[in-house]
Amino acid sequence: MYPAQFEYHSPASVQEAISLLGRLKDDAKLLAGGHSLIPMMKLRLAQPKHVIDIRKIPGLSGIKEDGGAIAIGALTTHYAVESSSLLKQKCALLTETAGTIGDPQVRNMGTVGGSLAHADPAADYPAAAIALGAEVVAEGPKGKRTIKVDDFFKGLLTTALQPDEILVEIRIPSWPVGTGMAYMKFPHPASRFAVVGVAAVVTADGKKVGVGITGAGTKAVRAKGVEAALSGKTLDAAAIKAAAEARSPQQGFLANEFSWR
């Protein structure tokens, strides 16, 4: 597997990376964990002329509490998320989700920011990010801006990021103690990507509900119909069953296209 020729850049700061992006535009690709980009380059499906490796930029990884939210650096690996005691305590949904990605090798290299920015329609994090009501912090030539997760995923492999912006952080709002969270997926037997993955967050009082679905369409979506059917209800088996059937009509499912699998 031999990728086409490319030039390698290793900027030392986010600003340097942004100016490279601004200069090289569509000819450039950012490299974080590389678990989507490098296979595509090896198959020559992607042939960027420039690869900007952001892994050596300091300060882009780590998980910390920051003004009531949890801030996760874009370069934080899936393994770091999976094993974070802070997340286990405050946002177990993310540790659970990270633990279902690929295999240990993938989790040791792949990054949260890379996964969200790549916006693979079958990636795991997007469902969790939607259910949690996360925010994505993007940095560009004009500085930082915050994008709500519901505005972030635009379509197949496309996000709200501008060509000269870099995803630098993910912010998870705080959920009250006792909030129930879970991620369940039906993994593809070969790739382990989600054929369908569902993340759900429900507060103890049942008033606040978040449900994200990944894998079943061209992008991850919020299951608004399910959320509406659940919020404020006593969560017995009948209510859950009814909610599961309250599908949102706008969701175009891809299932048939993969029926040979």
């Binding site: 296979p39 198959l43 593809h188 037997p189 070969a190 790739s191 040979w260 699998r261």
Partner: peptide, 9 residues
């Protein structure tokens, strides 16, 4: 259709 490890299980 199943020409990679991502598709061939």
């Amino acid at each position: 259709l199943s020409a990679t490890m991502m598709d061939y299980a």
